[in-house]
């Protein structure tokens, strides 16, 4: 698949494949021959049956694992063993309970060796911009699940990554908070001109947040279908979107694609 825009993609997977324990009886093929691109400022959603190897794919993009075939490029550079050029956000907020909100947000900057004063200024800006001013000194145990996930997102943003990987980031939250954070996260990603890849089980979440959706098959995962989400930013209100005909058409289409694969 070529990039939909003429600009160079921020991220590209070229025939990427991953086999664990290759050549042994325990060999497990996570995904095979996966190719896709993410354009600058584009959000791509990946949906697929559970256990289809999406998280493994993410680990490859993040540089935590090396694909056994094909390659992945971020910003034109092949992803090697080093990590840190993409932001990674997981279902668990993974805040360090002994650190305050501010200290959690600066964690990545600290690891990079950014001077404390500069990283704290940056973190305070983020905290203020995204509605957690006054909570800098709070401990994670004092925050609600939604607030904790916001702090985790700020920790990701603080490193200013080109691509943000969201691995089912809202699935542990209650329904209302999930809808709010979907829309909030998307507006932040757009405002900051970031690209993002979202892995989710939730078809509605994928349509609400993404510009494009890739449907994956059962393991070994391959790209089954690609859908463009033709909704403007103003159409993506989490309540009204459910009445949008394009949303419903998209939802049914992806549902049937997933259903067919789950049944087989």
């Amino acid at each position: 698949m070529d990039a939909m825009t003429p600009t160079a993609p921020v991220l590209e997977a070229r025939n990427a494949g991953m086999v664990f324990n290759p050549g042994t009886p325990d060999a497990v093929e996570a995904f095979r021959d996966v190719s896709f691109t993410v354009a600058p400022r584009e959000t791509l959603a990946i949906v697929g049956p559970s256990g289809c190897g999406k998280s493994t794919l993410f680990n490859c993009i993040a540089g935590l694992l090396r694909p056994t075939s094909g390659s992945i490029f971020v910003g034109g550079n092949r992803v090697g063993d080093t990590a840190g050029h993409v932001g990674y956000m997981l279902q668990k907020d993974l805040l360090l309970p002994w650190r305050t909100v501010l200290e959690n947000v600066v964690l990545g900057l600290e690891v990079r060796g950014t001077p404390r004063r500069a990283s704290e200024a940056k973190a305070k800006d983020l905290i203020r911009s995204y509605g957690l001013a006054g909570f800098e000194a709070a401990k994670p145990s004092q925050l609600s699940g939604g607030m904790r996930q916001r702090v985790a997102f700020m920790r990701t943003l603080a490193l200013d990554p080109d691509v943000i990987l969201l691995d089912e980031p809202f699935s542990a939250l209650d329904f209302q908070t999930r809808l709010l954070l979907q829309i909030e996260t998307m507006s932040i990603i757009r405002e900051q001109n970031k690209s993002a890849i979202l892995v989710t089980h939730d078809i509605g979440e994928a349509i609400t947040m993404a510009d494009r959706i890739i449907v994956m098959t059962h393991r070994p995962a391959r790209v089954l279908a690609v859908h463009d989400v033709e909704l403007g930013q103003e159409d993506r209100d989490p309540v009204n979107i459910r009445e949008n005909p394009h949303y419903n058409a998209c939802f049914k289409q992806i549902w049937s694609e997933l259903g067919a694969k789950v049944a087989s």
Partner: peptide, 17 residues
């Protein structure tokens, strides 16, 4: 408590939290 999260372009839903 400080006011609800300031949302760029999506002020509505946040206020309801």
């Amino acid at each position: 408590p400080p006011p609800g999260p300031a949302l760029a372009g999506a002020g509505g839903p946040a206020a309801s939290e």
